[in-house]
């Protein structure tokens, strides 16, 4: 089967500053992958390189496709809806997604909205932080595609909303689709991860199977992640 994601020798600079270098990352289909790293480590940049909205050197292929338009088609990224005015009703946003994305399934969205208790008659500005994140998740998962990128879906939201979001991920991720979830706080998502990818020192510092870490080191994912930092920082 074609890899969901394949990145080879990807380097990204902003001005003179190297944000990420020599990124090699291959993700098989059907996985849930935790993308871990400190704030500012480059997790969001890595996601933007995958979607094509950031342009670096090297090769990035999603579901075997390298062209940017094809990649966009195979990737569903959790956009933060900054392009919509606060007065926009949610039904309008949903209609926009349906028009723009051919793989957006309205009935899938309706199921997700029902499960996450999203009231689509509300205006965007009326949503709490947790509710807005639920909307973002529902819009992202309502597309049926190959690769899902969720950028810090749990930052600053309460534990009940978090549980609901985690359950919707388990329930609605298509079987062969791969999902990358970025987070700087690991313990809440550790049990649902197949693999972890750590971004550190401007590159992919480590990529391992979660249960292998537990078997090999007898420690939890969070403790393992923290141990990578205790070894000393070899930042430039």
């Amino acid at each position: 089967m074609t890899d969901s994601l394949s990145m080879q020798n990807v380097t990204y600079k902003r001005g003179m500053k190297t944000i990420l270098h020599d990124v090699d990352l291959t993700l098989a289909p059907g996985k849930i992958v935790g993308l871990l790293g400190e704030n500012g480590a480059g997790k969001t940049t890595l996601m933007r390189l995958i979607t094509g909205s950031a342009k670096g050197k090297g090769t990035t292929m999603v579901n075997g496709a390298a062209a940017e338009a094809d990649r966009k088609r195979y990737v569903s990224f959790s956009e933060q809806l900054r392009g919509f005015a606060g007065g926009t009703k949610l039904v309008k946003i949903v209609a926009f997604y349906e028009t723009v994305y051919g793989d957006f399934e309205a009935d899938r969205f309706a199921e997700l909205a029902d499960f996450l208790q999203i009231d689509t008659s509300l205006k965007l500005a009326a949503l709490s932080k947790g509710m807005k994140e639920k909307l973002v998740i529902a819009l992202t998962l309502a597309r049926r595609t190959t690769l899902y990128l969720l950028d810090e879906p749990f930052s600053g939201i309460d534990s009940m909303s978090r549980k609901k979001i985690i359950n919707s991920i388990i329930q609605w991720k298509p079987e062969n689709a791969t999902m990358v979830i970025s987070d700087h706080y690991v313990s809440e998502i550790a049990p649902i991860l197949d693999e972890i990818v750590v971004v550190k020192d401007q590159t992919i510092y480590t990529h391992r199977k979660a249960d292998e870490v537990r078997e090999e080191f007898n420690i939890g994912i969070e403790a393992y992640y923290e141990s990578l930092y205790e070894r000393g920082n070899d930042n430039d």
């Binding site: 359950n167 388990i170 079987e175 049990p191 197949d194 249960d211």
Partner: peptide, 17 residues
Amino acid sequence: VRQLAVDVTANVNTVQR
């Protein structure tokens, strides 16, 4: 498998294993 995954809040692949 998917129902079990939802019941225990784990990944489908992990339940399959």
